[in-house]
Design a protein around this nucleic acid. Structure first.
Lengths: 240, 240
DNA sequence: CAAGCTAGGCGTACGATGTACACCTGTCAA
DNA sequence: TTGACAGGTGTACATCGTACGCCTAGCTTG
């Protein structure tokens, strides 16, 4: 019952192999390019062979998402602000590598990497930052909404600005002769961004810093700088 | 060539009818519940009849998204902060009514309501708030990322907290005997939220206010209170 | 070494989906 | 009256996820 290769040297399939191949295939061909049949072909196997390692396509996606979570770092041993900053940047990078995962990170049944990640973030906010529970939840929701939302924008508008922005507006201009003249502020966006360019990285930093600044200003936050604070609000010991 | 009904009283199809029925159907059955065949059945018509009013399913979705944009209000004649606050809340409400639109608002070819909306928001930021161009872009990206990201969370976690949160974690507990003990901070979330409940509306307000506060603090912003400011940075007159 | 159990790959088949293509029909302009 | 044309119909096809049963290699066990 070994899973990598049989004694005779025959290659055998593997849950991990299936998941990794699926991620690779989705990275290249997008989410709707990921097909059980194509995935099987990639692994030189017949489609139905996959179902010995994965219950169905939804479970396959669950496993893929957990692989993405595993790529996101949650640094410890630094002050909470840079820890949260790095986590957000790391999450953005992971979603940039795997655009198909955008909007799917919190769907389905959470895997082990998912749970580990959320626990680590919550620990940072509670123990290191010293937020009371309610505020930690607020902070987490705010940061996640921003990161996921930004990744969504970056995905759908990827390479869009300024090149594609002009193209999209142009499509409308061609359709109705009134054109962009009705939308002077949109026209400004097109021309201005065409001139000066657009960097998603800078854009991301701006919003992230603004949010972290706002959180640092919260009165409930003791603005401690090290993660070794032994004055944690509570090391929770809740049981289900 | 009338489009509502023929002289004989025969009901005829309509692009608007198709779009509205599609929205209705997606509201009920979710996005993957929306099928050309089901949509046709809903309209008492054969599937291929739809293609006389809509090029393909992608164009159908474009039209649906524009209907959602048309539901979002961009108030004028108030100070920019409450205008942006109301717009964000209105967008969230619209995405709550049409969860299938979450993550699809900026995809495909933008329709007229889309263009009108973006132009109005940009006008508010430039003329009313007085942001210089670059800062207006920053502000817009930040707000949109937050609103879209929050809507995404609210959609995927809908009714999830505290009830479903417990269920999801429980699923993992059942799977591996180690259970939630490895994740004390997650356990706290489960028990604490089960006790005190969770209100998405409050959560949304917290993040939105923090962001708008941060934007108000920007040095480039003159913190004017009325939208009648004639000292706009520039009434743009850009031409493609 | 023989026997048989089982994990795991294979083949076939089915219903659902989007949509190309040809056809048919009712309405209106000329 | 006629002919064009907008718009609804019917058939057909490739592709999808996956249910069901078969088959075989390799391990466990007597």
């Amino acid at each position: 019952m070994q899973d990598t290769a049989a004694a005779g040297g025959r290659e055998r399939l593997n849950r991990a192999k299936v998941l990794n191949a699926a991620v690779e295939l989705a990275d290249e061909g997008g989410f709707e390019g990921l097909t059980m049949r194509r995935l099987a072909a990639q692994l030189s196997v017949v489609p139905m062979a996959l179902y010995k390692h994965v219950a169905d396509k939804r479970e396959l996606l669950d496993g893929m998402v957990d692989l993405v979570f595993a790529e996101v770092e949650v640094p410890a041993d630094v002050d909470w602000r840079t820890a949260m900053h790095r986590r957000a940047a790391s999450m953005r990078q992971a979603l940039l590598r795997h655009p198909w995962a955008v909007g799917r990170m919190e769907t389905g049944t959470p895997g082990p990497a998912n749970l580990h990640h959320h626990n680590a973030v919550m620990r940072c906010l509670r123990r290191d930052a010293g937020f009371p529970f309610r505020m930690a939840v607020h902070a987490y929701n705010l940061m996640d909404a921003y990161v996921y939302g930004f990744a969504l924008q970056e995905k759908t508008l990827a390479g869009d600005i300024p090149a594609e922005a002009a193209r999209r507006q142009k499509a409308v201009v061609d359709r109705k002769p009134t054109g962009l003249d009705d939308y002077p502020y949109l026209a400004e966006v097109v021309t201005e961004l065409a001139k000066t360019g657009f960097a998603f990285a800078d854009e991301f930093e701006f919003g992230l810093d603004l949010i972290l600044d706002g959180l640092s200003r919260m009165p409930q936050q003791a603005s401690r700088t090290a993660s070794s604070g032994s004055n944690a609000p509570l090391p929770p010991s809740a049981r289900t």
